[in-house]
Design a protein around this nucleic acid. Structure first.
Length: 431
RNA sequence: UCCAGCGUAGCUCAAUCGGCAGAGCAUCCGGCUGUUAACCGGAGGGUUACAGGUUCGACUCCUGUCGCUGGAGCCA
């Protein structure tokens, strides 16, 4: 069955007959009038059926059709001030495609447990629909930005032979009798790719087997990771800042109706413009101590610290030059102070936490080999990684951006589980 | 893994000091010519998570198990 058009484009059909296919979101009746709220995946429109003006069969069907049944509605498009979307359909015919069994998600309140168990159906709700559209827009905006700035999409393996960073827990996979792991970052591979194409990025799923159970964590999440040859820490921060500012602007431009559906405070997003504040780790520690936090130089930030740092600015804040001791082995040390890593985190406002983590990479072969030994990593497994320095080493930098946290921040959704269609969570993998 | 809270109808929740297990929505039947989570009348719907204990009597108190929710650590 072919729809003439979709609800999204209904404005161009005023006064004309159309056929729409979709699902019955709700149904109301009043005497000899039947109201049928149709959802077609692009929008929602109310269809009105008046007894005597449509066939008896169509009128009775409008009364009998259940929530989420799939139907084809034919009718006349009419502008109507009473309609939430500005348009209504005066129904002339109604055909049933499939009658739905009683739908579990009624137009009333539901709890998280129930909704997550029915995630495959929950996606149909207006709120989840809006989040999915914004997620798609965010990804498109970021890829457009990178593609338009001479980046080459490289893509890195999901099955990997060893830990990238050694510290976090990995999901083991049987690879023809050999134990391998699901990737937790494409970065090391990106470093090799950027020596081929100068500017590269990968975008794909990453996996962390940590037993994290917070609103900021999923076991499986998507990460965008650019890596650029001949780039230093400052350039890396410039890139992250420009990418995020560009993405926020795009979402505001293209997905304002969805932001409004979600009740997002749009003024807060409009404030997200370059430049973003940049503070050193030491300045961040001082700021937190002023706010009464018991934190000493050298400590890593906890969730509460991150929230406080994020809330002290109206746009994302970049914290740079962390103690090397709490950062990864591949990060280059600050030439001004060898105890510091040339790393930065971007912390989103409004308590959404760290959305970007990046660094300039160690490009000196001897130093890198020392670090690998210090971290008790198997040198032979990192041979290819060392080769990137052995054959024409070059300064380079990059970062990883967590898509789900970014979507949570921009949509104003509190928990990252609503930012991806089927979240993988601790001990929960259905549906 | 640790800390806290919660498990009652398909869903969201009540049930006073331990004393007859209830409401709204959903479903089914009926009514209403402009409804916006429509409304009005009626009907059906229960192993109170599970196992044990205390008691004349347990949804309620105690012990254990399981599940869920929120948070911490770790991180994006």
């Amino acid at each position: 069955m072919q729809a003439d058009t979709t609800i999204e484009r209904i404005g161009g059909y005023e006064g004309r007959p159309v056929t729409l296919t979709g699902w019955v979101q709700n149904r109301r009746s009043s005497g000899r009038i039947r109201f049928l709220v149709l959802r077609d995946g692009t929008g929602v429109i109310q269809c009105v059926f008046v007894k005597g003006e449509v066939s008896d069969a169509a009128f009775e069907l409008a009364d009998a059709v259940t929530q989420e049944s799939s139907v084809a509605v034919t009718g006349l498009v009419r502008a109507d001030k009473r309609a939430p979307g500005g348009h209504e359909l005066t129904g002339t015919d109604l055909a049933l495609i499939s009658l739905a069994e009683p739908y579990p998600i009624t137009p009333k309140e539901h709890g998280t447990e129930f909704l997550m168990a029915n995630r495959h159906l929950w996606l149909r709700s207006s709120r989840q629909h809006a989040v999915l559209r914004i997620r798609s827009e965010i990804i498109k905006a970021m890829r457009d930005y990178l593609d338009d700035n001479d980046f080459v999409l490289g893509d890195t393996p999901i099955l990997t032979p060893a830990a990238c960073e050694g510290t976090t827990t990995l999901f083991p996979v049987d690879y023809f009798g050999e134990q391998v792991f699901l990737t937790q970052s494409g970065q090391l591979y990106n470093e090799a790719i950027c020596a081929a194409v100068r500017k590269t990025y990968c975008f794909g799923p990453t996996f962390r087997a940590e037993k994290s159970k917070t609103r900021r964590h999923l076991m499986e999440f998507w990460m965008l990771e650019p890596e650029v040859a001949f780039l230093d820490l400052k350039g890396d921060m410039d890139l992250a800042e420009d990418l995020v500012a560009h993405t926020v602007a795009r979402v505001l431009e293209k997905r304002r109706p969805e932001l409004e559906t979600l009740g997002r405070d749009i003024a807060k997003l409009e404030a997200v413009k370059r430049p973003f504040p940049r503070i050193s780790y030491r300045e961040a520690v001082d700021l937190l101590r002023e706010k009464g936090r018991d934190i000493k130089p050298g400590d890593d930030f906890g969730a509460e610290d991150e929230t406080l740092l994020g809330e002290s600015h109206d746009r994302p804040v970049l914290v740079h030059r962390y103690p090397a001791a709490i950062k990864a082995f591949y990060m280059k040390r600050d030439p001004q102070d060898a105890s510091l890593a040339l790393a930065f985190d971007m912390i989103a406002p409004e308590g959404y936490g760290e959305i970007v983590g990046g660094s300039q990479r160690e490009d000196d072969l001897a130093t890198l080999e020392t670090r690998i030994a210090e971290h008790r990593l198997p040198a032979e497994a990192f041979r290819w990684y060392s080769d990137v320095r052995r054959y024409g080493s070059f300064p380079h930098a990059g970062f990883g951006l967590g898509i789900e946290r970014t979507v949570a921040w921009l949509t104003g959704v509190r928990h990252v589980r609503e930012t991806t269609p089927f979240p993988r969570m601790l001990d929960k993998i259905y549906p």
